[in-house]
Write a protein that binds this DNA or RNA. Structure first.
Lengths: 341, 341
DNA sequence: ATTGAAATCCAAAACGTTTTGGTTTAGAAT
DNA sequence: ATTCTAAACCAAAACGTTTTGGATTTCAAT
């Protein structure tokens, strides 16, 4: 049996009210009493019953994170790093983190609704925003606190952090164009993901800017896994006149593309340039190291979490909407042994 | 304001008791009343207040998972896959999942204690067991439900699932010995991790069985990251007479070792054989594909979670202790272009 | 008419906390 | 002696649910 306020009250010979107020340092409790209450609470190892507190206080000090994942063999470095960011920040600010996984769809919205109405959490963190994002619409409409990593096209009157994917992919495209590449393939992600939209846009604008032709046959879509990158790149490189550069919209597909090229006997960075986007830890120590765009996912997790907790506490945010400028990381996968541009 | 039992009671003209019992399908409520209560509950969109339920029922229907992670740049495929396993299984069985991150140490134990005593969770899942695991000692002593992925050396009277790492690493060692390798390097993980202990033992026993010499200079320890694998393998391969095979105790270090070898101009699978352990998704589509030992992490996550929930519900377990036999996955990183042994 | 049993219902207590709206006491000011 | 103030305290209500321990009604069997 755990120790309750009543137990302490009995020991001190005071009421439960006084004990509660003593522990919360109210000023209508005498210093002596406070000291006594505290020492006995300590002695008995008192820890408040959190459900009684939450029932009374009407808030949960918990934030929710529903990971939009598919299938069992799920392993995306993005999620573990992002999760570490929000987890640590939440702990630092005294919040719990409730995690669940649910593939996008009808059940996903039900999961949000259940957690909102129970109420299990005080706010949500949303990631991988989509065109017409039902989650954002639902939470906005419920006036339930949330912060997202990613924007939507219209309807942008909520708090978010996002990378400037257009700009980042522009950096990649410029880099390749400056190296003299004319025909560049693009490994896209499904169009309903906003990040895919912006990155693709950055790629297309980059080509236009350099007056390069856009060949629709060289733009193919995969599910963001290494396996997909491998398969798509294999197909592309087996064409009679394959492109000399492949831009993947994320690192995982780029890694798959590197393997595909190597399997076909090509030297990546010399015969074919391959680039990614995200700068996951794996990108630095693969062979050849991957040219990519750096995105500080852990820090973004921290930021998003801090913003959410401030919103929950009705504290003002310095900035409601933040767009981060990513930076280009040039490695061997695009420039082979050349030491400079 | 959310809908409570009282609201429903008022509408139906019955007591709160009856409404509660109707919704729980007790048989001292008339069918008519049940139907009416349910329809009105539905109409008002009633969702029980979970904190009131938990305060009353004394259990939380939540399981806890404290990820023992270091540092910010944390990205281990093990965790995302394992998390997906326990998350999905917990959801399937009606449990929430409370996640936090904490590096091993004193604060870690405090985190367990806080969650036990609040009480925030009904049980814990433990991973990456260590020699003298404080977490296990604490939870055993508190008689608090937990299931771990991984054993301890002594004190094994609790529920766990574990791989047979000795056997798995034996498969690897045999495989390499059969290929004719005599000097084999080993990339170890810190000795306090039990999995590292068993895998290392399997390696050493394997060498002994094949009457191969154990060269302590070829056994080096890293922090399980790709970066560590890269650095350790670089050092090893730069020796005047480098070994022709490198066994890494996990896939991530093996991937780093592959990059290191390639950086030095070696062809992995021909000039040097490299093996991993875990069969993470990345292992299949890297170049060359990685010879490794398959561990069904997602399924282990599900199993461990199901066992824990059964323990929480005081249902009997089919087996308290489960050791899984892993299987060898031979790919190009150990056999180059040879099509068979 | 009385008894018994079954069907249906419910007031009150309980879970452990915080908040509300006080009361009591001591001492100072009138 | 009365009034006022400040300090210290606390009973009861509230949060929303489930459980306990009956109460009432109905109807068949006697």
């Amino acid at each position: 049996m755990s120790v309750t306020l009543k137990d302490i009250a009995k020991r001190v010979g005071k009421s439960v009210t006084t004990v509660s107020r003593a522990l919360h340092d109210f000023d209508d409790v005498s210093p002596d009493t406070k000291a006594e209450v505290r020492s006995i609470a300590e002695e008995l190892g008192y820890i408040p019953n959190i459900h009684a507190q939450r029932l009374q206080s009407k808030h949960t000090d918990t934030i929710g994170f529903i990971m939009p994942t598919f299938g069992p063999r799920f392993s995306d470095p993005f999620f573990s790093e992002f999760l570490a960011g929000i987890g640590n920040q939440a702990a630092k600010m005294g919040f719990d983190l409730l995690v669940s996984t649910c593939p996008p769809g009808t059940k996903e919205l039900q999961a949000y609704e259940k957690n909102v109405r129970s109420p299990r959490v005080d706010g949500f963190i949303i990631v991988r925003t989509r065109q017409q994002d039902q989650r954002i619409k639902f939470l906005s409409q419920m006036k339930f606190p949330f912060v997202s990593f990613g924007r939507m096209l219209e309807h942008n009157d909520y708090a978010y952090v996002d990378e400037d994917g257009e700009y980042g992919m522009g950096l990649i495209t410029n880099h390749l164009a400056d190296l003299g590449h004319k025909r560049i393939a693009y490994l896209d992600a499904p169009g309903h993901f906003m990040f895919a939209h912006y990155r693709r846009q950055g790629f297309l604008d980059g080509l236009k800017e350099k007056s390069l032709e856009i060949d629709q046959d060289l733009i193919v879509t995969g599910d963001m896994t290494q396996r997909a990158g491998f398969q798509l790149a294999t197909e592309i490189l087996k064409q009679e006149s394959p492109p000399a550069a492949i831009v993947a919209c994320n690192d995982l597909m780029a890694l798959g593309a590197i393997s595909a090229a190597q399997q076909l006997g090509l030297t990546v960075g010399i015969d074919v340039a391959i680039t990614g986007f995200d700068n996951i830890p794996l990108a630095e120590h693969c062979h050849p190291p991957l040219t990519t765009v750096h995105q500080p996912i852990y820090q973004i997790g921290e930021m998003v979490c801090e913003m959410l907790i401030k919103k929950i506490r009705s504290e003002p945010l310095d900035q409601e909407q933040i767009i981060l400028q990513p930076s280009l990381v040039v490695r061997q996968s695009s420039i082979g042994n050349k030491k400079s541009l």
